[in-house]
Simulated scan of single mutants.
Amino acid sequence: MTDVTLVKGVRELSADDLDIGYTHRAQVSHGSSAPDAPMLHSDDPRLETILRLLRRFGGVIFSGPPGTGKSWLAGQVADKITEGDDSRRADIQFHASYQFEDFIEGYRPKSDGSGFEPRDGVFLRLVREANKHPDDDYVIVIDELSRADVGRVFGEALTYIERSKRGQTFVLPSGEQCSIPLNLHLIATMNPLDRGVDEVDAAFERRFAKVDMPPSRDLLEKLLDDNGFLDETVRRRFLGWFNKINARSVQTPAAAIGHAYFVNVVDPETLQEVWDYQLKYHVDRAFKYDPETRTEIINGWADIFAASADQEMPAPDETESA
């Protein structure tokens, strides 16, 4: 091996220094769990459909199991709407402790510790900005919508996010008047198995459009093609396994596995890593009370990498020469 000596004063640059590394991709993904995923093209039919729904409804909910690209698509659509201007966008994640005070308005401690002061939540801040700049589009992306008590979080605003009620004035608990403009768009994601889904459906069924995002073999095949996955035998068996476990999700909804789990799979080794560090735990949990099916799914995965009959048997000429 030849030693390489750097000339004094030469600066070493990492991939992230050049804005091409993982950190940069994670930043531009706006919270997507797949920062290496490709960008959404302007001519993608999904984009046209979602933009049309946003013009007709108070917002759009992407609903599907983990790994179907919900957060990625929400972030990509938001980027298109705001033309990449982060000042016109907010990304938040709901959780069990998320409250009206976080989202709309409430009292928060002063920075100097001298007491509390009223402070706008993320929603009200963007409402104010959107009202100031009616010619610009603003977006709020809510990840895991069903993880919070949506009725309590939205409060009075729940009524006025309807498209037909945009621009109408209502009064907040603080006594301040508010109106939600048409140029503020809401995009949300949720897992249909979350405990809060019934509350979301009841609150948003007339207000938001819902877009189902199930696991897709076609999108998975495209990912493998784009990643240059060349082992045809492993590929064929893996796609069969993918179909099989998602077919099981009809009886066991928690078993569904999205195609986005495999966004970084380029060869059999990286495919096996997805199983070792993610999927095997998913399978154990989904079939916790069905050990027979769990064993079947686990053995099916192992069969993906088993040597084919042709590989196991020696060629005729090799047998004769022996």
Rank of each mutant, 00 (worst) to 15 (best):
S71G: 11
Y107K: 12
E101V: 12
K110D: 08
G84H: 07
L73W: 03
A96F: 03
P66V: 10
A96R: 00
I81C: 06
G84K: 04
G69I: 00
P109G: 07
F100M: 11
Q99N: 12
E105H: 09
G75V: 01
S111C: 10
H95W: 05
G84C: 12
V77F: 07
D91Q: 06
D85I: 10
S97Q: 11
Q93N: 08
R108S: 06
R108F: 12
V60A: 10
Q76S: 06
F62G: 02
A96D: 01
Q99K: 15
S71N: 10
H95T: 10
L73P: 04
P66Y: 07
D102T: 11
Y98C: 07
D102M: 12
A90P: 11
D79E: 12
F100Y: 14
S63A: 14
I104V: 15
V60F: 13
G67S: 09
D91H: 10
I92Y: 06
Q76Y: 01
T68K: 03
D85M: 09
Y98L: 06
S63M: 08
E101D: 14
W72R: 00
T82I: 04
A74P: 00
Q93C: 09
D112A: 10
I92M: 08
A74C: 04
I104P: 04
E83V: 08
H95M: 08
E105K: 08
Q99A: 11
K70S: 12
Q93I: 13
T82M: 05
D91I: 13
S111Q: 15
A78V: 07
R88L: 09
W72S: 01
V77D: 00
Y98G: 04
D112Q: 13
G69R: 02
V60L: 10
A90K: 12
F62W: 14
G67R: 04
D91Y: 07
A96N: 04
E83Y: 04
Q93P: 09
S71D: 06
S97A: 11
F100E: 02
T82Q: 04
Y107V: 07
I92V: 14
Q93V: 08
L73Y: 04
S97T: 11
T82W: 05
Y107S: 12
I61F: 03
T68L: 00
G106I: 07
D86C: 07
D91M: 11
